[in-house]
Amino acid sequence: MHYALTINGKSHDVDVDADTPLLWVLRDAVKLKGTKFGCGAGLCGACTVHIGGQAVRACQTAVSDVGNHAVTTIEGIGETAVGARLQKAWLAVDVVQCGYCQAGQIMTAAALLTQNKSPSDADIDAAMDGNICRCATYSRIRQAIKQAASGADFGANGQPRKGA
């Protein structure tokens, strides 16, 4: 089946089976590898993308259900103000260990901050608990979300943070 998808503002014509999860369409047909496969069951959040601005698990979304909605992935989220702030905060806080989950974390956080400019700890808990970080960088994830939300000046990209 042919599907016309709008991904990160660009249109893509893909020829895939109707039940193919958006995750595999992105990764293997469109060749956008930033969206990650972790569990295939909506349990880990590594495949989080935005469809029509909502955070969804791409492994649980058949391509046939995407319709005309715009899809945004980690490769495109930096084009939004919230996404750019998050990516900057992620680097300033030096969140990443292995990094495999971080695309999904940032996509979930971007949906949260778009809807809630100043999330409380409880709001962050509610939004982010579905995203597993196997390296457990959670306190830095929380810190980076707050830093991005506060709109603070993070300094240069990758600026060293205060040491341990």
Binding site: Q87, V96, Q102, A164
Partner: peptide, 19 residues
């Protein structure tokens, strides 16, 4: 002894294919 951020982290947060 000086905190140095992960070298590939700028690529990680943009979803570049590293894995």
């Amino acid at each position: 002894g000086r905190s140095t951020p992960g070298y590939d982290s700028p690529k990680v947060v943009k979803g570049e294919p590293l894995f």
